[in-house]
Computed example of a mutant assay.
Amino acid sequence: MRKSRIVTLAALVALAVTPQATAGAQPGAEQAGQPISVEALSAAATLPGSARAERLIYRSTTVGRAPTTTSAAVYFPPGEAPEGGWPVIAWAHGTVGLGDDCAYSVAGPGAVERDWAYLGTWLNQGYAIVAADYAGLGGPGEHPYLNGVVEAHNVVDAVRAATTQYPSLSNKWAVVGQSQGGGAAVFTARYATEFGGPALDYRGAVGTGVPAYIEDVLQFSGPGVPPIALSPHLTAYVLYILNGLRTTFPELGIADLLTDTGRTWTDRAQTACIGPLGEELDAANVSIGSMFARPLSTIPDVHGLLAGYMGLPESGFDRPVFLAQGLRDTDVITPETLRYFAVLHANAQPATTRTYPTDHSATVNASLADSLPFVAALFA
Rank of each mutant, 00 (worst) to 15 (best):
I6W: 03
V63H: 07
A362E: 14
Y75P: 05
R319N: 09
P223A: 00
R203Q: 15
R59M: 10
S179P: 07
P82N: 01
A132I: 08
D201W: 01
A73D: 08
T298C: 07
S105V: 12
T95R: 03
A107Q: 02
S371K: 01
V13N: 07
A369D: 09
V7Q: 11
L281H: 03
T208P: 04
L323S: 05
A103V: 05
Y58K: 09
D101M: 08
P227D: 13
R319V: 07
S287F: 01
E280L: 14
R59G: 04
Q125W: 03
L258N: 06
E336C: 00
L257Q: 06
S287D: 04
L368E: 08
G181S: 13
Q26E: 15
F249C: 03
R263Y: 03
G182E: 09
A362C: 00
A25D: 13
L47K: 06
R190L: 08
D267Q: 14
P227G: 06
E151I: 01
G177Y: 00
P67K: 01
D329Q: 06
S361K: 09
L312M: 05
W122M: 13
T188W: 08
Y104C: 01
A152F: 07
A293P: 00
L312V: 05
P350C: 10
T68W: 02
G84C: 07
L234G: 06
G222N: 06
E251A: 15
V210P: 06
L123T: 06
G196I: 03
V286N: 02
V176F: 05
A189V: 01
G182S: 12
S50M: 09
A269Y: 10
L257G: 10
T22H: 09
A377E: 13
R354A: 15
Y240P: 06
A11T: 12
G209H: 06
E80F: 01
G24H: 09
G196M: 05
A135Q: 13
Y356T: 12
E142F: 13
L98A: 12
P19G: 12
T163W: 00
E251D: 15
S297Y: 10
T352L: 11
R339F: 02
Q20Y: 00
I274Y: 10
A161G: 03
Y145F: 15
P78Y: 00
L245P: 13
I299A: 12
T22Q: 13
E280V: 05
T271V: 15
G204N: 08
V17L: 02
V112D: 12
V364I: 15
T264Q: 15
R354P: 02
V225G: 02
G326Q: 07
G197H: 02
Y309D: 00
W122F: 14
N285I: 02
Y75R: 03
E251L: 14
S371E: 08
